[in-house]
Design a protein around this nucleic acid. Structure first.
Length: 86
DNA sequence: TATCTGACGATAG
DNA sequence: CCTATCGCCAGAT
């Protein structure tokens, strides 16, 4: 477990149900501004984290997981329209 | 030390 | 709105 992973994990766990955060925001909260891409790498290989609460900077859902993510977010009260969060 | 990878981000067309 | 590009970052090889 690297320092980066620990901090990113913490930031993601801090997202409240019914809310979402962008990769960039997570990277910032973790103390690694600009490392949004690396954040995605961590999420792809980790488990047990609320990955569905993370979206892209434009509000788009995670590429390749739209259906599942939309289902989970909607269940938490997040409005998802046309593969986008609102 | 050099490369490659990918659940990113901003921008141009 | 969509795709193509390019720049960036931490990790893995």
């Amino acid at each position: 477990m690297t320092e980066f992973e620990r901090r990113v994990t913490r930031a993601i766990r801090s997202i409240q149900p019914g809310g979402v955060a962008t990769y960039g925001e997570i990277a910032e909260e973790a103390g690694f501004p600009g490392a949004g891409r690396a954040v995605g790498n961590v999420l792809s290989g980790s488990d047990g984290l609320p990955w569905w609460r993370v979206v892209t900077s434009t509000g788009r859902l995670v590429p390749g997981h739209e259906a599942e993510q939309a289902r989970l977010l909607t269940k938490e009260g997040v409005r998802v329209v046309a593969g986008r969060v609102r």
